[in-house]
Amino acid sequence: MKEAMLYERLKDKEVRCQLCSHRCKIKPEKTGICGVRKNVDGTLYSLVYGRVIARHVDPIEKKPLFHFLPGSRSYSIATVGCNFRCDFCQNFEISQMPRDQGIIMGDTMSPEEIVAEAKEARAKTISYTYTEPTIYFELAYDCARLAVEEDIRNVFVSNGYMTKEALETIRPYLHAANIDLKGDDRFYRRHCGARQSPVLETLKNLKEMGIWLEVTTLLIPGENDSLDLVRELARFIKEELGPGTPWHLSRFYPRYHLTGLPPTEVEKLAAARQIALEMGLRYVYTGNVPGDPGEKTYCYACGRVIIDRFGFTITDYHLDEGRCSFCGAEIDGVWS
């Protein structure tokens, strides 16, 4: 175990975790909502520091990040645990392991070993992903600091529920993030055990801090796929984050506790994408539909395809130092 960052000691050996927006008040010998931060005699500890449950070398497009070092490799890690309890979780076997099984598993790895493996894999980035990086913040923070020394950048793939204190702490070492914007407040309360407003604040904070940001929404039939909600979320992204913020609309497949629902109709994804484009967003993508036209990056100025993709693979590329090779328009992103 490693002593946690970002908590305060209270009376009677209770502590308050300040890492995520639940701000759990934790009694002695109890854990927070995430199940991986435990109060031991008045000191808060991380139970997952250096316990890596998953590690892979992925294309950066899998995060998904389409406008951040496209075509590069991202060394990707996770521990068990999450501060949400999404009933549609795509990685529930590891994210919900502490809650559903009452156990914590993972291979023992130091930050030095993680960064060394990333370097050996010739990865341009380390992505903290698959579960929720906020809950293994201490490990991510130590890895991120070492990674920067090796000219490796850092990426959070997150539900966006971290506090501003956590974001300000990791800020010097965090270069990009993909944040889930899952739905309206009712959806968050019903399906995730959380609220929407802290996520909106995180999105705005990331933008203000100059960290490259992309947003993902998994469209679930009958739950968060109304076109009125699409308009509402698109309006927030455009007005608060800027029209150059990429938005990924992903197809739902039945998982975990929502196995009774059908996959998202491809036509519904296409309609949602078209609405978001009409609302003024420059880059709107459809995910989990390999070969769909919505995987491509189009120049917002001339309409030509400037990055052609099939799944996570780039098949054609027409950018010259961040500008459209056809018309010269500057394309939002981090390209080198």
Rank of each mutant, 00 (worst) to 15 (best):
227 L>C: 05
254 P>T: 11
236 F>I: 13
317 Y>D: 10
248 H>R: 09
220 I>P: 02
220 I>W: 01
35 G>M: 08
159 N>M: 11
165 E>D: 15
254 P>A: 09
286 T>W: 03
56 H>M: 09
198 P>T: 08
280 G>D: 09
247 W>N: 11
243 P>N: 12
331 I>Y: 06
148 V>S: 13
140 A>Q: 07
179 I>T: 12
5 M>E: 13
113 E>W: 06
306 I>Q: 05
192 C>L: 15
233 L>N: 08
229 L>V: 09
286 T>R: 01
80 V>S: 05
288 N>C: 01
27 K>H: 13
175 H>W: 09
293 P>K: 08
63 K>I: 14
249 L>G: 06
73 R>S: 14
292 D>N: 14
145 R>L: 06
18 Q>F: 13
10 L>Q: 06
62 K>P: 00
185 D>I: 07
112 E>P: 01
73 R>P: 00
95 S>F: 04
315 T>E: 13
187 F>K: 01
260 G>C: 08
224 N>C: 05
207 K>N: 14
89 C>A: 07
113 E>H: 05
199 V>Y: 06
326 F>W: 14
20 C>W: 03
154 N>P: 02
52 V>L: 08
77 I>N: 02
220 I>A: 02
208 E>S: 14
122 R>P: 00
144 A>K: 01
251 R>V: 03
184 D>E: 04
241 L>E: 11
122 R>D: 15
228 D>F: 00
31 T>P: 00
151 D>F: 03
83 N>Q: 12
99 R>D: 08
256 Y>F: 15
35 G>Q: 09
113 E>T: 05
138 E>T: 02
253 Y>Q: 07
324 C>A: 11
305 V>W: 02
4 A>Q: 04
161 Y>N: 15
53 I>M: 08
81 G>D: 11
167 L>V: 07
326 F>A: 13
154 N>V: 02
232 E>V: 10
299 C>V: 12
19 L>E: 07
107 D>H: 07
42 G>C: 03
197 S>N: 12
325 S>R: 14
246 P>I: 12
172 P>V: 08
17 C>K: 02
244 G>C: 12
310 F>L: 14
24 C>N: 04
292 D>S: 15
164 K>A: 11
227 L>T: 09
275 I>K: 01
61 E>C: 03
94 I>E: 10
312 F>L: 09
84 F>H: 12
73 R>G: 04
67 H>P: 06
268 K>H: 11
189 R>T: 10
50 G>E: 10
48 V>N: 01
154 N>G: 03
96 Q>N: 06
285 Y>H: 11
256 Y>E: 09
94 I>P: 03
282 R>Y: 15
200 L>K: 12
324 C>R: 06
268 K>G: 02
315 T>L: 15
226 S>Y: 02
208 E>H: 08
277 L>R: 10
252 F>W: 05
66 F>L: 11
208 E>Q: 15
159 N>E: 13
26 I>F: 01
35 G>L: 08
102 G>Q: 10
43 T>R: 02
7 Y>D: 00
238 K>S: 10
183 G>H: 10
119 K>H: 13
10 L>G: 02
231 R>Q: 13
148 V>Q: 14
162 M>L: 15
204 K>G: 12
35 G>R: 04
106 G>D: 10
123 A>P: 00
274 Q>P: 00
152 I>Q: 02
101 Q>N: 15
132 E>F: 03
22 H>P: 07
1 M>A: 08
126 I>T: 06
75 Y>H: 06
334 V>G: 01
187 F>I: 14
207 K>Y: 11
49 Y>T: 04
335 W>C: 10
240 E>Q: 14
